[in-house]
Design a protein around this nucleic acid. Structure first.
Lengths: 218, 218
DNA sequence: AGCATTTAATGAGCTGAGCTCATTTATACG
DNA sequence: CGTATAAATGAGCTCAGCTCATTAAATGCT
């Protein structure tokens, strides 16, 4: 049974075509297809089980590593970098999880949904902490931040898997953090700050006139 | 033949399970499965053809509507809103296209790849124009912007399709544009601006002293 | 140790979807 | 009207997922 799952994992990693894997597993293990169905009611259940186990182990490592990192930006950067790295190194497993997450809503929800909620909840927590500490604005739409981060990571990875060159998780993480933090617009003043500046400039102008009139400062 | 494709489109829209659609089409049209294979070498080719036609028509409308909009932010907002709306209204067709885009690199590239490149090239062009006009910073990583916009849109839509509430394309587009433009960090001054402010504040302080000493301004 | 009972494994074979092809039916043309 | 070309048919093949009656192995009990 553990053999079956290990073997399934190997095959799923090797060719991302999921057809015929039951026969393939049986062949490799020297057992018969029917035996596999003693342990897994259906091929889909076997695949989901493999995906779940992998996802769970991945999250455990994640938490351990994340625990040592402090600061909103550093923690965000780490999570993004980690996700990019995992997708870069384990695209087949990621695809399993993502396919399951995107399956029809009618299907019985697997525990992958729950694992995923736990996962993204960590990201939301980091952003919330950032808001609480005053580093991030209070009005940011939390779930959209999450969607853009993970969506961006995945899009970036698909392009890579499509064969459009390689990518560096470190650099990509840096780019994502930069965009999320600063945006892309040329910085302009907020109305308040702009107003303050204008008032200060008025003052400066008056002072200039004072100077030109040779009026002593004190 | 046109009947087959129209019928295939209807079925693909109705149930997002793609198994048995050949028999389904034949049944609905009162023909036999073999007839379908006179026009399409394989089921996959039929599906791709349907997806391509839909994608092409969608892009044509897109261009027509986009032509009437000026300004970097407005054009970006429109493209994002449009993509959100399409995914909201036609998730099944979008899934076909996306699945094809994410298929194995070994497969012969369909024209969907090319259509998609055209599509995202429009977005890149808008960002480039924004840089040229001075509205956007020159150092933004173009493809990552694209990945985050479209990835964010898709993630947002998957959550909706998973049954996690509805969403408003207009509001979602606004949120995405806001994040992309401003980022989420609390605004801080650039070194130059901070320096200028400091100098101005020094001036203001001196002026204050002048006023306190009752020295006439002129 | 020897028998009974429960559990595991087998392999033949069913199902259903994609697909093929020899044959039949319809259409076009001189 | 007859022939040539194109279109449609339906029987049936393949292959993957899956079932189940039967056989083999393991476990428990006296």
């Amino acid at each position: 049974m553990a053999d079956i799952m290990r073997c399934a994992g190997e095959i799923l990693r090797a060719h991302n075509d999921r057809d015929g894997i039951v026969a393939e597993i049986a062949g490799r293990l020297g057992i018969v297809e029917g035996t596999i169905y003693r342990y897994f009611p259906t091929k889909r259940d076997l695949i989901i089980q493999v995906a779940e186990d992998w996802y769970e182990a991945m999250l455990a490592d994640y938490d351990r590593e994340l625990a040592g990192i402090t600061g909103t930006a550093a923690r965000l950067r780490f999570m993004i970098w980690r996700h990019l790295t995992v997708m870069h190194d384990e695209p087949a497993m990621c695809r399993l999880v993502l396919d399951e997450l995107r399956a029809d809503a009618g299907y019985r929800k697997t525990s992958i949904y729950e694992l995923n909620r736990q996962y993204t909840r960590r990201t939301l927590a980091i952003v919330k902490d950032g808001i609480a500490s005053g580093e991030l604005r209070a009005d940011v739409p939390l779930t959209m931040i999450r969607d853009m981060i993970y969506g961006g990571i995945e899009h970036h990875t698909w392009a890579y898997l499509r064969g459009e060159g390689d990518f560096s998780p470190t650099q990509a993480a840096e780019e994502i953090v930069a965009i999320i933090y600063r945006g892309i617009a040329v910085p302009t003043d907020t109305p308040e700050r702009a107003g303050a500046l204008t008032r200060l400039e008025d003052v400066a102008t008056r002072l200039e006139r004072i100077a030109q009139n040779q009026i002593p400062e004190r």
